[in-house]
Structure formats: structure tokens, C-alpha cells
Nucleic acid binder design. Structure first.
Length: 423
DNA sequence: TCTGGGGTCCTAGGGCGA
DNA sequence: TCTGTCGCCCTAGGACCC
């Protein structure tokens, strides 16, 4: 190994689809897709589904016939299941290095410091086998001297499964250069649509060409972010492993099942999102100082009158009480709602987050201390009962708000009534 | 009839006090 | 007292990620 400090990127293959398959072994080698909230778009595809030409983000109803024709197994998203499976995978990974950054629900960076005498290829292979054996989730591993290069190494592992067995270690200059020349510029981590379009105008088509550009030019065009990426691709470690950090904003936004015109219906939705957001705040022991409330019409229906409006509401004191946040969210909504529009989407975003134990209460405007205990009780009961049975009065109890989730799989791992039964 | 949701970081530009 | 300038803070918007 010519580097003494390396990064590994572990990425679960077709994560949501793989989670569904863990409990449905009959679906192995069969096309599986998972849909977004309200069963709107395709958000995950198994390899077999990719081969059928189903693109990421495909609008579900437009592919209905293809699903039937090729016997594609379609699932509504089941985040309770995916979150739990993710925890299991991350837990196993943490045994392979003390330095772990959970990058997303299905990805983690590991840093190997002082592993000079290790055969990293064998080590990563063992790690991927263990994850697969213990959770049923297949993963790929890319190992390289920087985070950006480990992303590329991971891509190689995924692209050539027979040759790599799902693990690729970029441990020589030759391998680095070969990989950079192989990867298209638009596939590099950190290069999106806008930047790749700009680079292609400059006749930059792969990552290697990008590394050859003058750093001053890269910085002036793409700011410090572009410059960092260029250094990373050259093999100079620039991005560090991020520590576990509390979130800076918590968003709860959803499309409505139907268009809503009546303010009372929208109020109920916004109140529910506010309560959900407050629950997330309590989950990470933080309070919000400010909330942002927005509503918008269906932007895909240009034949209809369009309206988008948002409002920032300053809370009188930092809080995570569902009651208080819901109240101010509804006040905000009243300010932005306009009669005569068919609203399709709305949301509440918690901002200005501070740790629960550090909040400074306003001298004259203290929160009702009963809220704290009440919220604890609500969280406890909801955790115990599942299904979020305890709600605020302003949140509807009926079916009207329910998401469209026609193909929802059971919550095998988190719901006692859904545990798989062996007969 | 149906078109996701949840984040981060950076920069530019304005307000404001020293 | 008025004006210019600098730095800090905040916000909006843009770009990216999964």
C-alpha cells in the first residue's frame, strides 16, 4: 500500500429494493422497484429493473403497463424498514474501523488509519461478506487515498462485479490515473448538471482532464468547492471524515394526496407536518427558533393557476413542543394562503436549531411547562403503539390525509404485528 | 387522476455598528 | 455631525448530494 491513510466508501446496492428482498427471497433475481411517497415516482430499482430501462425518477403511472408486462414487483416506500436495516449495516461497519461517517441511509465512509500492514482488499471483502451474511444486504466497497477517489473506486467495484467481487482498492498511481480517465466528468461526486455542462464546453470529458486544469481557473469558476474536489482527485486528502453532527434544519414536506383548496384542510396537513417535525426535533434533543411554512400548487399542471408562497415565522422562544410549533405554523399558513388556488404540496421546516438544554427562554414569554411532560408522554405512547395514534386535535383522525401507499410491505423489523412468521 | 423528500455548503449582497 | 470604509452577521439563492 503506498498510502498510510485511506478511506473506504461502502455503498449498499439498490438499497431500498434490497431491503424489500431480504424478507421476500422469492424476489431474488427478479425486477423490483420502490416508489416515493404517494406512489409517485420510482426511487429505487434492482439491477433487473434497470435492465428493463426503468429510469430513476420514472413517473409510476406512465410505467404501469411495463410493470405488468415484465412482472416487476412494485413496493411503496417503507422508511421504517429501511431505517432499521440501515442501522444494522452501519453497526457492523463500525466494527471494522473506529472512524466512521454515516453519509446517507445507504452509504458510509470508513477511515483506515494505521492499517499499513493490512491486506485491505481481503479486509474489505470480509467486511462486505459479513454485512451480506448478517443483514442480507449486498454492498460494494471502494478504497482509495481520498474520499472523492474512494467514491470512484466504489463505482468501479459496482460496475465490474465479476472482476472485483464488489471490492476495489485504488492503491497505485497507475490505477488512479486509469480510473480518472475512465470516469465521465458528469459521474464524478460533486459535479452536477450545471458544472459538467460548463466543463464540456471546455472539452473536459473525464475526471483526469479536470485534474489537469489550472487550479486558479477551477477556483474562479467553481469556487473553493471545485478546488477541493480537484485536489481530492489528484490524491491529496482534503476532505476529512465528518463527525456525527446534529442537523441544522429539519424539513417535513409532502405532496397532498388530492388538491386542497379549503384552508381548513390545508391547516390540518400543516399542523400534522409541524407535529412530525417537532417529534424529529425531540428525537435529536434540539429546539427550533424559527420555522418556515410553505404551500404550493401543482407545478406540473401549467394549465392551472400557479401559486407558491412561503413565510418565516419567528417563534417566541426555542421550542420542540408540537402544540406551540403547530400553533405558529397555522398562523403562518393563514398569512400565505390565498383563496381560489388548488394546493398540492406543503411543508414545515424547523430552523435555527439549538440544543434542548442550552435554549434561552425569553424572560416574559415562558413556555407552558406542562408541554414538556405531555410531549414525552405522546412520544412514549406513539413509540409503544406504532402508528402515531396520539395526535393533536387539529390533526385529522380520519382517512382523508392518508398517503397513497398501495404496495406497502410489512414493517418486518420494527412492528411487532408485522414480524415474519415461520409456519 | 397520478410527477419525492430531505439535506448540506458556498457566495453574493444588504444592513449595521465601530 | 456627516461620510466613508471595514468587518460581521444574516438571508436568499444556487449548486450539489442521496
Amino acid at each position: 500500500m503506498y498510502f498510510c491513510n485511506v478511506f473506504a466508501l461502502i455503498d449498499c446496492n439498490s438499497f431500498y429494493a434490497s431491503c424489500e428482498r431480504v424478507f421476500r427471497p422469492d424476489l431474488r433475481n427478479k425486477p423490483v422497484v420502490v416508489l416515493s411517497n404517494n406512489d409517485g415516482c420510482v426511487i429505487a430499482r434492482s439491477n433487473e429493473a434497470k435492465v428493463l430501462g426503468i429510469p430513476m425518477g420514472a413517473v409510476a403511472y406512465q410505467y404501469k403497463q411495463l410493470f405488468v408486462k415484465h412482472n416487476v414487483h412494485v413496493f411503496s416506500c417503507n422508511f421504517a424498514l429501511y431505517g432499521d436495516m440501515s442501522n444494522r449495516v452501519m453497526n457492523i461497519l463500525s466494527h471494522y474501523s473506529p472512524d466512521v461517517e454515516i453519509y446517507s441511509i445507504d452509504e458510509a465512509f470508513l477511515q483506515f488509519k494505521g492499517f499499513e500492514n493490512y491486506d485491505l482488499n481481503a479486509y474489505a471483502l470480509e467486511m462486505s461478506r459479513k454485512v451480506n451474511k448478517w443483514t442480507g444486504i449486498p454492498v460494494c466497497v471502494g478504497v482509495a487515498p481520498t474520499k472523492a477517489l474512494s467514491k470512484i473506486a466504489n463505482r468501479i467495484a459496482k460496475k465490474f462485479p465479476e472482476r472485483t467481487k464488489g471490492v476495489y482498492v485504488m492503491d497505485t498511481e497507475e490505477k488512479r490515473i486509469k480510473a480518472l480517465k475512465w470516469i465521465k466528468i458528469e459521474d464524478v461526486w460533486g459535479i452536477g448538471r450545471k458544472i459538467s455542462d460548463k466543463l464540456k464546453l471546455k472539452k473536459i470529458y473525464n475526471a483526469y482532464q479536470f485534474t489537469q486544469l489550472p487550479p486558479e481557473w477551477v477556483k474562479s469558476e467553481f469556487s473553493i468547492v471545485g478546488l477541493r474536489l480537484q485536489r481530492e482527485l489528484k490524491g491529496i486528502p482534503t476532505l476529512e471524515l465528518d463527525e456525527v453532527k446534529t442537523k441544522k434544519a429539519i424539513a417535513t414536506t409532502r405532496s397532498f394526496k388530492n388538491n386542497l383548496t379549503n384552508i381548513n384542510d390545508i391547516k390540518e396537513r400543516i399542523s400534522t407536518y409541524a407535529a412530525l417535525g417537532a417529534e424529529k426535533l425531540r428525537g435529536q434533543s434540539t429546539c427550533a427558533n424559527v420555522i418556515l411554512v410553505f404551500i404550493q400548487t401543482n407545478r406540473h399542471r401549467q394549465d392551472q393557476k400557479q401559486h407558491y408562497q412561503k413565510i418565516i415565522v419567528k417563534l417566541p422562544y426555542p421550542t420542540n413542543s408540537s402544540i406551540t410549533i403547530s400553533k405558529y405554523a397555522k398562523l403562518g399558513l393563514q398569512r400565505i394562503y390565498k383563496k381560489g388556488y388548488a394546493y398540492k404540496k406543503g411543508g414545515v421546516i424547523m430552523m435555527g436549531l439549538v440544543p434542548e438544554n442550552e435554549r434561552q427562554l425569553n424572560m416574559f414569554c415562558d413556555e407552558n411547562p406542562k408541554h414538556l411532560n405531555l410531549m414525552k408522554t405522546i412520544d412514549h405512547l406513539n413509540n409503544k403503539l406504532g402508528h402515531r395514534n396520539i395526535r393533536l386535535a387539529s390533526q385529522a383522525m380520519g382517512r382523508t390525509w392518508k398517503m397513497r401507499q398501495e404496495k406497502l410491505s410489512p414493517r418486518y423489523t420494527t412492528e411487532i404485528n408485522d414480524i415474519i412468521q415461520v409456519k
